[in-house]
């Protein structure tokens, strides 16, 4: 485990002011049929909050409802206290929410540098180069691949770029959908232990969905456990680790299957 000092540089990159997020009885799904039911969660400014649960428990749908990709059927989403339910996803992005989808998370035909530029689309053009430099300071490994096509990157590099892309707008809230899906275990731990920490160190609030419960607990301030589209448990990592029910269902078998 690394400390903030060891990660270095990133601590100096703290620029964003984290936003608070709250959902109230959020029910969301596709084509009118709900997948998540009456979910109420809250994330305080600067917190790292994770959502874990088995496959098909509705974790991704919850995130998509929050960022406006999936239809909200009832309930509401509040960002810094303001009701943002039913806003289009591009409008939610403009409010400072950076969303990293599980797949198709980069502009594959564009270079790394162009991907970052696109991430900074809302910035004044003259501010973009400095901001790109800033993101390259947070993720120095990206620097030597700026002119490579994003589609040619490895899984871990690609996820780093996807996170760098959302950092371009100094997001107040970063929403990550299973950033370690389809990554080798070693790379997955780098993504969570280093990359997500770097995001958090910028000051942004982080809401992260993960299959790898044990690994994500280690970097979370609090965790919600979803099953069958509903919140089953919530608590700090210490509280959950002390719960025999949680340990048996979600940590007992070691690493849950990915996907």
């Amino acid at each position: 485990m690394r400390t903030a000092q060891e990660i270095g540089g990133a601590a100096a990159a703290r620029t964003a002011r984290g936003a608070s997020l709250r959902t109230e009885s959020l029910t969301a799904g596709y084509g009118g049929s709900p997948i998540v039911h009456e979910i109420s969660i809250s994330v305080a400014p600067g917190e790292v909050v994770s959502v874990v649960g088995p496959n098909g428990s509705g974790k991704s749908t919850l995130l998509k409802g929050i960022v406006g990709i999936v239809e909200v059927l009832s309930g509401s989403v509040h960002l810094d206290g303001a009701d943002v339910t039913h806003r289009a996803t591009e409008e939610i992005a403009r409010l400072g929410v950076g969303y990293v989808p599980q797949v198709d998370d980069v502009f594959a035909p564009l270079t790394v540098a162009e991907n970052l530029e696109m991430g900074g689309y809302l910035l004044k053009p003259k501010d973009v180069p400095a901001r790109v430099e800033h993101v390259l300071d947070v993720f120095p490994q990206l620097r030597r691949m700026v002119s490579r096509r994003a589609g040619k990157l490895s899984g871990g590099e690609r996820k780093m770029l996807a996170m760098g892309r959302v950092l371009m707008l100094e997001p107040a809230l970063v929403v990550l959908d299973e950033p370690t899906a389809n990554l080798a275990p070693q790379i997955a731990h780098t993504v969570l232990d280093e990359h997500v920490r770097r995001l958090a160190l910028t000051g942004a609030t982080v809401l992260i969905v993960e299959q790898r419960a044990r690994a994500v607990l280690a970097i979370s301030d609090r965790t919600y456990v979803l099953a069958g589209g509903r919140v089953r448990m919530e608590g700090t990592p210490a509280e959950l680790s002390a719960s025999s029910e949680f340990v048996e269902s979600f940590l007992g078998g070691g690493q849950p299957a990915g996907g």
Partner: peptide, 14 residues
């Protein structure tokens, strides 16, 4: 170009 490459991601860029 962003819209052509990945429309959903373009929307996520605002």
């Amino acid at each position: 170009r962003a819209t052509a490459a990945n429309r959903d991601l373009a929307r996520n860029c605002g």
